[in-house]
Amino acid sequence: MNMQSEIEKKLQTDLDPVHIEVINETHMHNVPEDADSHFKVTVVSERFNDLPLIKQHRLVNAALSDELKQIHALALHTYTPDQWFERTGGVPQSPPCRGGSNI
């Protein structure tokens, strides 16, 4: 399994997130071509409710303790479901039908 899926799986299992996004940013860095080393993670979970940011990040760091030994950088953005909803205005709506299936 590659590092990106590994990180996603660990976070799914440990934090029961309502939303999760793991982006491999390795290409933005000066590293060997086959490196898999820089990631950006966004996690939205009810587990973060009422916790200060540092404790939210500690939960993620704990879930990824093995991975953190191997990767070089982890950008971390954690939100409670309420904060995430406020930030994004909910899940984006799908575009309306334009009748293409009848052609």
């Binding site: 540092i54 982890l74 971390l76 953005h77």
Partner: peptide
């Protein structure tokens, strides 16, 4: 805390870059 940088204010860890 596994990563760098680390910011401390009044002897306490505040967090890393994102925080």
């Amino acid at each position: 805390w596994p990563t760098f940088p680390q910011l401390y204010v009044n002897g306490e860890l505040v967090g890393g870059c994102d925080i």
